[in-house]
């Protein structure tokens, strides 16, 4: 097989193994969710075309290793009949990872799987200068490790303090993990929460005995430029708190276009941002979102 042919296969999620003539085939999995029907098809495919095993990847994906070159097309066809697509590799938008979100997890603030589906529909497999990963954590507990992704998203619970209902027990101050909640001792309408430091965990709301600390709204906090690999770095917060999944998808579209315009081949997005500076990205994305709300 020549390199051009291999590049095409790799783009389609079929990765050459160490042993010549064998491939590990990456499957299309969104947010780590598979139906039992799909799982049975994957089991059957691994038995029939591989060596009866699968590999669970660190980003919630599934790969079928030990597939001979001449079985790749048949495997793809077999899986597609059960609604299982093959994955992507190379300089593309990769698997979207997500937690179970607010429909399953008691801590969840947003519907992570639904957002993962929306992001996947819009961006999966699209060409970019280098691999580009999106991860969605439903809340501040951050099980998906949002900051390790080129774009990370975290659910955010915005608290609101009402002086009238407050008994000034200061339990909210005690439970705040970042110690940004400061309740005035004698009452009044002093700003209780410094939003720049709030991580949106909602602990103050859950712990408040009097209901003075309430949920004002829920939203999405966005991080850009994170990665792991050989030289890890954490993504940085951008854009404040977004309010809707549509805003998140629009923001990602603007970020992806920014990466296409400014990124170099084989340069991760975080490295692009180190050259352009984060403000250049934020300005660009904000302008785009104002123009195309």
């Amino acid at each position: 097989m020549n390199e051009a042919d291999y590049k095409e296969l790799k783009k389609g999620g079929m990765m050459r193994q160490k042993e010549a003539g064998l491939f590990s085939v990456r499957l299309h999995v969104v947010g780590g969710r598979l139906t039992t029907h799909q799982m049975r098809a994957i089991q059957e495919a691994a038995d029939r075309f591989g060596r009866g095993s699968v590999h669970l990847t660190v980003r919630q994906g599934v790969e079928i290793p030990f597939v001979p070159t001449d079985s790749l097309a048949a495997l793809k066809e077999f899986l597609s009949r059960s609604g299982v697509g093959v994955g992507v590799c190379g300089p593309t938008v990769r698997t979207v990872t997500a937690c179970q979100g607010c429909r399953v997890c008691p801590s969840g603030a947003i519907d992570s799987p639904a957002l993962a589906d929306a992001v996947d529909r819009e961006f999966y497999g699209k060409q970019v200068p280098h691999k580009f990963k999106v991860g969605i954590s439903g809340c501040a507990n951050n099980c998906i490790k949002a900051e390790e992704n080129d774009i990370g998203i975290k659910g955010f619970v915005q608290p609101r303090w009402s002086g009238d209902a407050c008994t000034f027990c200061k339990i909210c101050e005690a439970v705040c993990p970042t110690k940004v909640v400061r309740i005035p001792s004698g009452g009044g309408s002093v700003e209780a929460v410094d939003l720049s430091g709030c991580i949106g965990c909602g602990d103050c709301i859950e712990a408040c005995p009097s209901g003075a600390m309430e949920e004002e709204s829920r939203g999405y906090q966005i991080f850009a430029g994170g990665k792991f690999g050989r030289i890890p770095s954490l993504g940085k917060k951008i854009l404040g708190i977004l309010r809707t999944p549509e805003e998140v998808v629009a923001a990602i579209a603007a970020v992806v276009d920014f990466f296409r315009a400014h990124g170099k081949a084989k340069e991760r997005f975080g490295d692009t941002l180190r050259r352009t500076g984060l403000p250049a990205l934020e300005t660009n994305v904000r302008e785009r979102m104002v123009r195309n709300p």
Partner: peptide, 20 residues
């Protein structure tokens, strides 16, 4: 604090006074 108070509230009990 957080776990106990949120569990109390979830089960319908009331915290009527709290002080450090």
């Amino acid at each position: 604090l957080k776990n106990v108070i949120s569990s109390l509230k979830a089960e319908g009990h009331k915290v009527t006074r709290a002080e450090r």
